[in-house]
């Protein structure tokens, strides 16, 4: 597979490490969340046949974490964003 890195252009998937569902961005706050909420965050994932937003890490590259939107059926990559930008857009800060 080839992932079009937003900064570095097309890169072979071998340079990346896969983590999984981009829902991991939405980590609840441990001081205010319930254990159940945290359990859902940690363990529950959707498994769509189709577009899937997922986290990839450019370990053999610039160490960017990326959000890659990939069709799990065709492997077509629909969008690649810097995870930091996505996280900020989702309201994460410090």
């Amino acid at each position: 597979m080839i992932i079009h890195h937003p900064i570095l252009g097309p890169r072979d998937a071998q340079e990346f490490v896969y983590l999984g569902d981009a829902s991991l961005i939405g980590r609840p706050d441990g001081l205010t969340a319930s254990i159940e909420e945290f359990h859902n965050y940690t363990y529950l994932r959707d498994n769509p046949a189709g577009a899937h937003r997922e986290l990839w890490y450019h370990e053999q590259g610039d160490r960017s974490w990326l959000v890659v939107t990939r069709n799990t059926v065709t492997h077509e990559i629909l969008q690649v964003e810097l995870a930091r930008d996505v996280a900020r857009a989702e309201g994460r800060s410090k």
């Binding site: 980590r27 370990e59 410090k94």
Partner: peptide, 19 residues
């Protein structure tokens, strides 16, 4: 050594991007 570094990058870029 490798996985901790990866994890720290995840925390820094994804969980707390403005730190």
């Amino acid at each position: 050594a490798v996985t901790v570094f990866r994890h720290l990058e995840f925390c820094r870029q994804v969980l707390w991007p403005d730190m």
